[in-house]
């Protein structure tokens, strides 16, 4: 595929998704960038704003198998990764793979599960393999997790610790659609039906190629310096509890590359970094003064305006 072909393909993908998820161009683009960068996505918002639909659409257009795991407070790790069952006929244990053995996992309402169940999923995300009773089983490739979580102020939630949040490349919010989009949604056809009617645009090997392409988007020394300056500023500034980790810097670069690719460019601009910054820092930077509910966008703006381009 030529660069223009990539761009064309990605534009079509975005168009497909945006036909179903109305008025959410920015989050949709972020979600796609996240997948192109090979990372897992965390979606936080109120129920009913289209989190699950987004996962369905993404899986559909990218041609991936989707398994949904609805997390509940009584869930056990075996419910996620699978269990070995004694088969009387053969007189041996047989492994019954859990729902995690799929290309795309929709982990719904992740923060309603106990930390034990949460960590089973999160470990699989990190290692891209699961170890059960001494046997290591690889997860399919590509492997994506789209986790949704309810805002933590809701009752019956177990907030994810920072170390586990860091495993999600991006965190996005969907929010309510604007008036026009909502009217269109109400007037339009059933979303489930529309998803089912979508034709996949990609095969898994093509997706892997796109991911490869993303990694090869050029980041100049000036841009690397900019990302480093951003990270360094969060560490020296007294605004936040802790600064961005080097892993967060890597995440920022990876997503910015995907963003540039979505724009049809073979190099990253500072604008790419600034555009994806809210999603990268939303779950990574915490204000000292936690009572002020400052959105990720405002945090990112303050950070951007504090750091001059090198």
């Amino acid at each position: 595929m030529q660069p223009s072909e990539h761009h064309l393909l990605l534009t079509q993908l975005l168009a497909d998704i945006n036909r179903i998820i109305l008025g959410k161009k920015e989050p949709v683009r972020m979600a796609l960038a996240c997948l192109l960068a090979g990372g897992h996505l965390l979606v936080e918002d109120l129920p009913g704003v289209g989190k699950t639909t987004l996962a369905h659409v993404l899986a559909r257009v990218l041609g991936l198998d989707l398994q949904r795991i609805q997390f509940t407070s009584d869930m056990l790790p075996a419910d996620i990764i699978g269990v070995s069952v004694f088969d009387r006929a053969s007189g041996a244990f047989h492994f019954h793979p859990g729902p995690i053995f799929t290309q795309m996992v929709l982990a719904d309402e992740l923060n309603r599960a106990t930390p034990k169940a949460q960590s089973a999923l999160l470990e699989a995300m990190e290692e891209r393999q699961v170890t059960i009773e001494g046997a290591t089983r690889a997860l399919p490739a590509p492997f994506f997790v789209i986790a949704t979580q309810n805002p933590t102020f809701q009752i019956g939630t177990f907030p994810l610790p920072e170390s586990q949040l860091d495993r999600f490349l991006l965190k996005i919010e969907l929010g309510y659609p604007d008036a026009a989009a909502e009217r269109e949604l109400l007037a339009g056809a059933d979303r489930r039906q529309m998803v089912a009617e979508l034709t996949p645009r990609l095969l898994p090997p093509q997706l892997l190629e796109l991911q490869q392409k993303t990694r090869s988007v050029h980041a100049s020394p000036a841009l690397i310096a900019y990302i480093q300056a951003l990270a360094a500023f969060t560490r020296s500034s007294p605004l936040w509890v802790a600064g961005l980790s080097p892993r967060a810097g890597l995440a920022l670069l990876a997503v910015a590359r995907a963003w540039a690719l979505l724009d049809g460019r073979d190099h990253v601009l500072p604008e790419d970094v600034q555009a994806v910054l809210p999603g990268v820092i939303a779950h990574r930077l915490r204000f000292h003064d936690d009572t002020r509910k400052v959105g990720a966008g405002e945090t990112a703006n303050r950070l951007i305006e504090a750091v001059p381009l090198p």
Partner: peptide, 9 residues
């Protein structure tokens, strides 16, 4: 020009 502004912005 604000020093944090990228060229496209």
């Amino acid at each position: 020009w604000q020093p944090w502004e990228g060229p496209d912005t």
